[in-house]
C-alpha cells in the first residue's frame, strides 16, 4: 500500500506547501491557505486551533479529499491524493477517512443504526454486514440501546457519538473532526473527547480535530496553530527542534 513516498511512513498525513484561494468577483481572491505544510503522525491525536477564518476547515476539507487545493500536495499513508481523478474519491473517503462535522451531521430520516451502516454500505458491504458492523460500533460508543432512535430522538452528546461510530465503522486510517465538540457543554465535550482517546489508544486510529477549546487541545498529543491561512505554531516541530517557528 505504501511505497510511493520516500518520506517517513510514521507520518499518515503529509501536506506540502498547500495553497487555496477562492475567487470572489473578477479580481478579488480570498486566500484561505497560503503555503501550509504539516505532518501528522500515525496513531496520534492532533488538534488544529486558530481564530475564525484562519483556514482550519479549508485545510481539513482538503486533507479529507472533499476539496482540492489551488497548489501543493497532500499525501495520505504514502499516497498522493490531491490529484486523484474524481471517480476515485468516493472509495478513498469511504475506506480511508472518517468525518465528524459540527452541528447536525446525521441524516434525520435515518435511525442511528442506519446512519452508521450507510457509511459501510457506501464502502461496498452488504446491508446485513453493514448493519452488523454498525451495531458493534454503536456498542463501542455506548449507544447499543439507542440504535433505532432518529436524530430528533437523541441528545446532542448521543448524536455526536453516533457520528463518531459512523466515522469509525469502516476502520479508517484517519478521523477528521471539524469542531466535533463545538456545540456541547463542557461535561459532554469531555466525555466525547475521552471516548475518542479510548478509540485512539485501542485501535491506533489517527484523529485530527479542529477545536477552539483549549481543554480539547490539551488532551491531544500534537497542537497546530493557524492564522490567516498559515501555520504559526506546530508543537511537533518544536519537539524535534528542527524547523521554523513563525511569529
Amino acid at each position: 500500500m505504501s511505497d510511493a513516498m520516500e518520506g517517513n511512513l510514521n507520518q499518515i498525513v503529509e501536506v506540502i506547501d498547500l495553497h487555496k484561494s477562492y475567487r470572489l468577483g473578477k479580481n478579488n481572491f480570498v486566500h484561505a491557505l497560503r503555503g501550509t505544510s504539516l505532518s501528522i503522525k500515525k496513531g496520534g491525536m492532533t488538534a488544529i486551533m486558530g481564530p475564525s477564518g484562519s483556514g482550519k476547515s479549508t485545510l481539513m476539507h482538503i486533507i479529507g479529499s472533499l476539496d482540492t487545493p489551488s497548489k501543493g500536495e497532500v499525501w495520505l499513508a504514502g499516497n498522493r491524493i490531491d490529484n486523484l481523478p474524481k471517480k476515485k474519491l468516493p472509495k478513498l473517503r469511504a475506506s480511508k477517512m472518517g468525518f465528524i462535522f459540527q452541528g447536525f451531521n446525521l441524516i434525520p430520516t435515518l435511525t442511528a443504526l442506519e446512519n452508521v451502516a450507510l457509511a459501510a454500505e457506501y464502502k461496498g458491504l452488504s446491508r446485513k454486514e453493514s448493519a452488523k458492523l454498525a451495531r458493534e460500533r454503536l456498542d463501542v460508543v455506548g449507544l447499543g440501546d439507542r440504535i433505532r432512535h432518529r436524530q430528533s430522538e437523541l441528545s446532542g452528546g448521543e448524536q455526536h457519538r453516533v457520528a463518531i461510530a459512523r466515522a469509525l465503522v469502516n476502520k479508517p486510517d484517519i478521523v477528521l473532526g471539524d469542531e466535533p465538540t463545538g456545540d456541547l457543554d463542557t461535561e459532554t465535550s469531555r466525555e466525547i473527547i475521552q471516548m475518542m482517546k479510548e478509540v485512539n489508544m485501542t485501535t491506533g486510529t489517527t484523529f485530527v480535530l479542529v477545536t477552539h477549546d483549549p481543554e480539547v487541545a490539551d488532551s491531544c498529543d500534537h497542537q497546530i496553530q493557524m492564522r490567516d491561512g498559515s501555520i504559526v505554531d506546530d508543537s511537533a516541530s518544536k519537539i524535534d527542534g528542527s524547523t521554523k517557528t513563525l511569529s
Partner: peptide
C-alpha cells in the same frame, strides 16, 4: 443539500 454533502463525505459516489 446538507444531507447530500454528508452522504458524499462518507463515501457516496455520484452514481449512488
Amino acid at each position: 443539500t446538507k444531507e447530500i454533502g454528508i452522504r458524499k463525505a462518507i463515501g457516496a459516489s455520484s452514481f449512488k
